[in-house]
Design a protein around this nucleic acid. Structure first.
Length: 464
RNA sequence: GGUCCCUUCGUCUAUCGGUUAGGACACAUGGUUUUCAUCCAUGAAAGAGGGGUUCGAUUCCCCUAGGGACCGCCA
């Protein structure tokens, strides 16, 4: 049994979106599950559209998700010579031929096909014409001589047997007229040289697979296993594209989604293991298999991502949650000031129970992060003279406190409830508003303790 | 239009011929609570339609409908 090897092969012609990330995740998980290898191959042979910034974005995205590849990144454009060599070999062996059709001629064929409402397939014109008749002014492309008779069966590890008539596969171009290789050739050659055992990729590659298998066969190479996973659809049921809202990783990281939450969500999107919903990293690797992959496309569901994230935040130990939060603020908000660090850190225990995202934590901790209180106007209006009186009484009481702790604070509050003939709300609400600017927020004792006596007195004095 | 794929609650899914069709998210209601949340309980919610096969079909087969992917000298 050969050692399992998988790869993720994105093209840097646009930012990597969440569908690509899932493909990468599945490949990675599969290889890890089999104690195999996982490689990253950058398919940058489209010189026009490939951009370095996208390559960087792809690599950073994978890194953020914790998907690590073995060895160096494989840069496809560096291997073009190999691909051309194989193309020549195919020509010599009679598996390919030069096609002298002009671009106009091909356009014409396509137009006609469209008019007649019949599918366009290259008419294989030059397949059997002698090269002696070739026009001198046209640089030929190299086409693969596809099978015409019979049909082929793809034994897909997800979809089962897929049968297709060979004649529906056209004689596809393997070398452009500028001598550069095209995708199907390059991908096949690379996969072969990289010793790939399993090709796990999006459903949209299925036709390519039939082409690539023919190349393998022509060269006498062992054919790897293929698994075509269903695509992720938008809420409108269409293939997810780079242009769709909330499709790149950055769209998620900037609102404070944790990579482990997204990983768990993506894992369960189109894959399942019994009724299990939560998979930590170890479990993901342990349970992942191809059998659990569903056949139908699935839609992205933001509320599910959010609730998964909420779960991971709640179950994250405070110190490591602080690190994540600090990093998040560094990148997307303001750096946390040194003197606020302790206070934030010790508040996470209650802050995290109110948060679905790191951004929620940020919003709920603004009263600590900022030195001045920003009031919600309608909330501020709730502070009437009666409320001010209580605020002042409370302030006087804590001023006399030697030990500033929860028990003593509770005692004061209870005393004030009695002496002022009010209820908890009558005290808690004005305090919360004057300390945080809003009537919504963490528990009042949590707020007071996280701010510290001096700051509390200062803020109460400002309003009272 | 051609080829191929798909179809269980709104969403993600379990079920591998016999179940009151299960879970999770979202939603609704109630409870706990110190506001907002959390948490807990309860509820509503699904086999696209039609034929077969079978003692019995969500499950196997066929047809129809709906949805999707591909149809580049892009990857």
């Amino acid at each position: 049994m050969k050692k399992v090897a998988t790869r993720f092969a994105p093209s840097p012609t646009g930012p990597l979106h969440i569908g690509g990330i899932r493909t990468a995740l599945f490949n990675w998980l599969y290889s890890r599950n089999k104690s195999g290898e996982f490689y990253l191959r950058i398919e940058d042979t489209d010189k026009e559209r490939s951009k370095d910034e996208h390559k960087t974005q792809i690599i950073n995205s994978l890194k953020w998700m914790g998907i690590t590849h073995d060895g160096e990144e494989y840069i496809q454009s560096e291997k073009i010579d190999e691909h051309v060599k194989i193309a020549k070999e195919l020509l010599e062996k009679g598996y390919a031929y030069k096609c002298y059709c002009s671009a106009e001629e091909i356009e014409e064929q396509k137009k006609r096909a469209k008019q007649k409402k019949i599918p366009y397939v290259y008419d294989r014109k030059w397949r059997d014409i002698s090269e002696d008749e070739a026009p001198k002014n046209i640089k030929p492309v190299l086409r693969f001589k596809s099978k015409i008779e019979g049909s082929s069966i793809l034994k897909d590890l997800v979809q089962g047997d897929v049968e297709i008539e060979n004649k529906t596969i056209e004689d596809f171009v393997i070398l452009r007229n500028d001598g550069t290789p095209t995708y199907n050739l390059s991908a096949s050659v690379d996969d072969y040289y990289m010793n790939m055992t399993h090709i796990i990729r999006g459903d949209d590659h299925k036709i390519n697979t039939f082409k690539q298998i023919q190349i393998y066969e022509a060269l006498g190479w062992d054919i790897p296993f293929f698994a075509h996973i269903p695509l992720i659809h938008t809420i409108n049921g269409k293939k997810l594209s780079k242009r769709d809202h909330a499709s790149t990783l950055e769209d998620y990281s900037k609102i404070g989604i944790l990579p482990e939450a997204l990983r768990n969500y993506l894992l369960r999107l189109g894959w399942s293991y019994k009724d299990k919903e939560i998979f930590d990293l170890e479990e993901s690797i342990k349970y992942f298999n191809l059998e659990g992959i569903g056949k139908s496309p699935s839609k992205l569901d933001m509320s599910r991502i959010l609730s998964m994230n909420e779960y991971y935040i709640k179950n994250c130990e405070e110190n490591s949650l602080y690190e994540k939060f600090r990093e998040y603020c560094d990148i997307y908000k303001d750096k946390i000031k040194k003197e606020k660090e302790y206070s934030i850190k010790s508040s996470l225990i209650f802050l995290k129970n109110k948060a679905k995202t790191l951004e929620d934590i940020f919003n709920n901790s603004k009263y600590i992060l900022n030195d001045t209180v920003t009031f919600n106007e309608s909330d501020k209006n709730l502070i009437n003279d009666e409320a001010k009186k209580i605020i002042n009484l409370f302030k006087e009481n804590i001023l006399e406190l030697n030990v500033f702790d929860r028990r003593n604070l509770e005692e004061i509050v209870n005393k004030l409830i009695k002496s002022n003939n009010t209820n908890f709300k009558g005290i808690g609400q004005p305090l919360r508003i004057s300390l945080t600017g809003s009537r919504f927020g963490p528990g009042i004792y949590d707020i007071i303790l996280s701010l510290g006596k001096d700051e509390v007195v200062k803020r109460l004095s400002d309003i009272g």
